[in-house]
């Protein structure tokens, strides 16, 4: 018999509280935090008596998951499990954000959680995830079809209306993502660039790091470091590190300490870790069996060691004649 726990949001977190009651079938507490079992997962497993699973190295089918623990900074992973209506605990204090923000609702999602926010729950528990569908953020698409014969003008009018409606909705979606995803990152990047340029760190970087980033052997070394199987899942989340390095390299290109023709190989040198943190989630989005996930994670990590440096060389060959 499994015990129920109550998980509340952390000090700056969002969502919840969730009451998790593992059952005979749903008895896995899955930690998808870049490898290993994190303390929150361990605590939940200890209190409930359910089985903690390292979701990064072991595949678990969705129907066995009681709750999944993630550490997503708000780009992708935080919406994937809520979209499938699986209880989700995010260790990072992130609210409704990312491309799947509309699925992140307080009845399946809680964030900013630490061990202190987990307690035993005594009381009546509904065992099942509430199945009520997420409120659709998008208005219903206009239904162009209708019964019976219609005049040519009516049909033309309706078809036009349908297309215009789609354009309008596209505009709304765009403004939505720009506000939720693009502008916040611009603010972050601008602050970073301001600090680099204004404080003199820029000169220091130019003197110490860019001599390496401005040569092919240097870029190869960077790509190999990013592709090391232990590091790559840690460097991956949200591509934040790749983006910061991209900005750093951009600043150095802008002030002339890295020649512009290295821009293309640099784009690949800083990115061999892309998506390495996301492999189990990405595979399960493609309905992969748990066995495939177990093989897939190491296979992709190994592959990156070969293809990471190779991609830099290919990009270098293709940068001939650029600038």
């Amino acid at each position: 018999m499994y015990k129920a726990v109550k998980i509340e949001r952390g000090s700056s977190g969002w969502g919840g509280p969730l009451v998790i009651q593992p059952t005979e079938k749903k008895n896995k507490i899955v930690s998808v935090t870049g490898g290993g079992i994190d303390p929150v997962t361990a605590k939940i497993a200890e209190l409930t008596g359910a089985i903690p699973v390292d979701g990064f190295n072991t595949g678990v089918s969705d129907s066995e998951i009681a709750v999944v623990i993630i550490d997503c900074g708000g780009t992708a992973r935080c919406g994937v499990y809520p979209k499938k209506r699986i209880y989700t605990v995010n260790l990072t204090a992130v609210g409704q954000s990312g491309p799947l923000a509309q699925y992140i609702t307080s009845d399946v999602y809680v964030s900013g959680v630490t061990e202190k926010n987990i307690s035993l729950y005594d009381g009546e528990v509904k065992a099942e995830v509430p199945d009520e569908p997420v409120k659709e953020a998008k208005p219903a698409e206009q239904n162009v079809q209708s019964k019976g014969k219609q005049g040519f003008l009516t049909r033309l009018g309706k078809a036009t209306g349908g297309v215009v409606g789609k354009f309008y909705q596209a505009g709304r979606d765009t403004i939505d993502t720009v506000i939720k995803n693009v502008i916040p990152f611009m603010a972050f990047v601008s602050m970073l660039v301001g600090l680099i340029l204004g404080s003199g760190i820029g000169d220091w970087i130019a003197n110490t790091i860019s001599p390496y980033a401005g040569t092919i052997p240097g870029l190869l070394v960077i790509s190999i470091i990013c592709a090391i199987p232990v590091l790559s899942p840690l460097l991956g989340p949200g591509a934040v590190i790749a983006q910061i390095v991209g900005v750093l390299v951009g600043v150095q290109i802008g002030n002339g300490s890295i020649p512009p023709q290295y821009a293309l190989p640099a784009l690949f040198a800083i990115d061999p870790q892309v998506g390495c943190d996301f492999i189990p989630v990405g595979l399960s989005l493609g309905d992969a069996e748990p066995e495939t996930v177990e093989v897939g994670v190491p296979a992709i990590l190994m592959s990156r060691l070969i293809t990471g440096p190779a991609s830099v060389l290919i990009a270098y060959a293709f940068s001939i004649g650029l600038y």
Binding site: T177, G238, A242, D271
Partner: peptide
Amino acid sequence: GELFVYMGIAQG
């Protein structure tokens, strides 16, 4: 959400 891998370098 991840434009600045490219845009960071493009800005330079």
